[in-house]
Amino acid sequence: MKILTGNDLKSGAVVWWDGRNWSLHVEDACDVGEDAAMIAAREDAERRVVVPYAIEATVDADGRIRPAHIKDRIRALGPTVRTDLTLRPADPEAGTWVI
């Protein structure tokens, strides 16, 4: 699938397009198909997001969305060397998800 990501203009937080809004959680991302460029341009112009871009992603065995590239998996999680600051602070193994 193709999903759309970027950073929130004001906070810089990593965000994912869920079909209506920007979410902090990659699990909320929706398949944007051919609409990526159109949505990206509109949201950029509205200043709801900064440098949006579309990426490939797969759905893993547990039904979780997994960006194809390691960089976006790290963006989806947070720094692997500070799992306490990631979106899964209670899970010390969270870092292995990106590999």
Binding site: S11, G12, V50, R75, P79
Partner: peptide, 15 residues
Amino acid sequence: PLRLMNGLYLQLHAY
């Protein structure tokens, strides 16, 4: 380029 001249980058997780 303006924010960069003030040391502000957009990195992986935030500015």
